Amino acid sequence: MKPAQMERTPFADLDSQPSEMTAMLLAALEAMGRHPEIRRVRRTAMQALRPEPGARLLDAGSGAGDVARWLATKVGPAGEVIALDYSAATISAAVQRHDGSNVRYMTGDVSAMTLPPDSVDGVWCERVLQHVDDADVAIAELIRVTRPRGRICLIDTDWGSLAFDGVPSRLATTVVANMHGRLTPRQADMGRTLRRRLIAARLADVTATPVTCVFGDPASAAVVLPMVNPVVPEQAWTTPPGVRDEWFSYVDAAGDRGDFLAILTIWVVTGTVA
């Protein structure tokens, strides 16, 4: 009998959402990609991956394709980027946003790809493994499709690092304790485990860089942190009755005072396939 799958967040199961929710989630992904802190994480990852002109790269879990198109500028006209995503709706949105660069879009499961072995020179996989049922299976697939001496760059969130100031600590603790599985993935510690996973997979030259994202006002935090975003539907919350309204009243007050603070660490981990 197959083991029961963990409850998926809307981001992990986008094709099953109503069209209005799909549009909202795609807009949220694009807004995250424009956020200065996420852009800082991506710059760190790009420096770690070190893509070369002429390389063939895989963006595993490519979303609307903004990173894939950025990678295409690094590999140049002689290279290629494969943008792979589980969601057909997301790939359709990516195709609509295509800018003529050398990116090939395809649907696929990062844990069971149809790409042949040793078919890419490098892999970018951003905030995907926190959503899959078995991250080590997915990592093994990423290694399988990467040629020897190719680079793999994994970027993922450590939701356990999330902390707030300017709001009551007991209320923040309640919100964070109730968020996993609905507002954020159950695999909340994925970011901090990536280094261990790549070492266990026998990759060489493993490096791990924590990037602490700092959000100094609620509007900035709401782009990345769903529990600070009042647009997230109330039915997505699993907190006790009244907690959501109380939480947002304190968040808004901290924003008005100017002392709201949220911090979240995202890890960038790279390794070389032996």
Results as ranks from 00 to 15, higher is better:
51 P>K: 03
98 H>R: 15
36 P>W: 03
15 D>Q: 14
226 P>H: 01
91 I>R: 14
26 L>Y: 08
5 Q>D: 06
269 V>G: 01
45 A>C: 10
11 F>W: 12
107 T>G: 07
69 R>N: 02
184 T>G: 13
194 L>Q: 11
267 W>G: 01
190 M>A: 04
102 N>R: 15
145 V>M: 03
54 G>E: 00
258 G>H: 14
92 S>F: 11
49 L>Q: 07
45 A>G: 14
209 T>N: 12
210 P>H: 11
51 P>T: 11
48 A>F: 09
207 T>C: 15
181 G>W: 01
59 D>M: 04
160 G>Y: 00
93 A>H: 13
205 D>I: 05
37 E>D: 08
265 T>F: 00
88 A>F: 12
273 V>W: 02
146 T>S: 03
262 A>L: 08
229 N>R: 07
54 G>I: 00
2 K>P: 14
230 P>F: 08
231 V>W: 13
212 T>F: 05
159 W>T: 00
141 E>W: 06
139 I>P: 03
172 A>C: 10
1 M>A: 15
123 V>D: 01
82 I>F: 07
134 D>L: 12
24 M>N: 08
61 G>F: 02
45 A>I: 05
11 F>H: 12
240 P>A: 07
114 T>V: 15
135 A>D: 04
81 V>P: 00
81 V>A: 00
137 V>C: 12
237 W>A: 05
64 A>V: 15
199 I>H: 06
22 T>N: 09
119 S>Y: 03
27 A>Y: 03
153 C>E: 03
271 G>F: 05
